[in-house]
């Protein structure tokens, strides 16, 4: 089929073929289907609770996206988050009168430090990121378990307990129980917006895409690879710390093995959101939609009383399916561009 204006056709194809558009349609279709089965699903109370329970996964996912876009990989962030939680919890229990700002700063700093450590090791040892981060996952988690003896932390100060019940929008349900859009969801959205702006409009973000697209080309274009690796992995560390903090705020306890082992929910959300496994592509909007889709799916499975051990089958199948689709469409796009340039 010949076309007089292949450029316009390409743009049109891109818009309708865009991963975000497809995801949004799938998400809407799912919400409609689930609402038809169980009308209570669409109520604001349930939606707010889905958003709240997805918030820490969402925060992890934003950080993971940055690393994946830069062509890296990090599976140690759940261990980083756990270490950060423990650091915060220990300080809070030892000094209950510590100023909230200072207490909440601790997990962020711990996260950034451990994330940057990953970046330094990957850079200086020039080893595959998956191997370095598997090693670090075990170092962080093993040492934490060894030092703390797997002890649970709870009984945090009052302000810490009330924090998640700070609502931006608040309502009362028929039984007079207060519910609303928690400030924690706003933290997630704030991280997403900051990351989105950073990735799209700032040089730092564009450099990450360049690194993921072709590391050697990026190096020769004068990008300081080490600096931007530290930036990407450090940002993931920051998100891990923040996600760990949010998780503690929601559950009010620190347990060493709740987060570790759930890395793949985050990986699933990010690849579902269309971040390419080739590196160099992926958007914050896609990632947020990916997290939303998995959260809705998991909520729907629970509503439909599907046993929890089936959830993992769904997650695995979705990951493989979405990786396959993203890869194939990336290959197809590459071929189309080749053809276009050849004309």
């Amino acid at each position: 089929m010949t076309n007089k204006n292949p450029g316009a056709q390409l743009r049109l194809q891109r818009f309708f073929g865009q991963n975000e558009t497809i995801l949004l349609l799938v998400l809407l279709a799912m919400v409609t289907a689930i609402t038809a089965v169980s009308p209570r699903f669409l109520g604001p109370e349930n939606l707010f609770s889905i958003l709240l329970s997805a918030s820490y996964t969402g925060i992890f996912a934003i950080g993971f996206l940055l690393v994946l876009v830069s062509g890296g990989l990090d599976v140690s962030f759940t261990a980083v988050a756990t270490v950060a939680q423990y650091a915060m919890g220990t300080v809070l229990l030892a000094n209950p009168d510590i100023s909230p700002a200072l207490a909440l700063l601790i997990p962020l700093l711990v996260g950034m430090a451990l994330g940057s450590l990953n970046a330094l090791l990957i850079h200086y040892l020039s080893a595959p990121p998956i191997i370095i981060t598997i090693a670090n996952l075990n170092i962080f988690f093993g040492l934490l378990q060894f030092i703390t003896g797997g002890e649970w932390l709870n009984g945090f100060p009052e302000w810490f307990d009330h924090f998640p019940q700070t609502y931006v929008l608040s309502f009362e349900n028929a039984d007079g129980v207060k519910y609303g859009l928690s400030v924690i969801v706003m933290i997630w959205l704030a991280v997403a917006v900051v990351a989105g702006v950073l990735m799209h409009y700032f040089k730092a973000g564009r450099k990450l895409y360049a690194m993921g697209g072709n590391l050697e080309a990026a190096r020769r274009a004068g990008i300081d690879i080490l600096r931007y690796r530290i930036f990407a992995y450090g940002f993931l560390g920051f998100c891990a710390g923040l996600g760990g903090m949010v998780h503690t705020l929601i559950t009010q306890t620190v347990v060493p093995n709740t987060l570790v082992g759930h890395e793949f929910d985050v990986v699933a959300a990010v690849v579902l959101g269309g971040a390419s496994i080739f590196g160099g592509s992926g958007t914050v909007v896609g990632t947020v939609l990916g997290v939303g889709l998995l959260a809705v799916l998991s909520n729907a499975l629970t509503i439909m009383k599907v046993p929890t051990y089936w959830h993992e089958v769904f997650v695995g199948a979705i990951v493989i399916l979405s990786i396959t689709i993203t890869t194939l469409s990336a290959l197809a796009a590459r071929n189309r561009e080749k053809k276009y340039h050849a004309q």
Partner: peptide, 12 residues
């Protein structure tokens, strides 16, 4: 758990 940490350190 300490052994697990040691394995990681040894790998690095």
């Amino acid at each position: 758990f300490l052994t697990l940490g040691l394995w990681g350190a040894l790998l690095i």
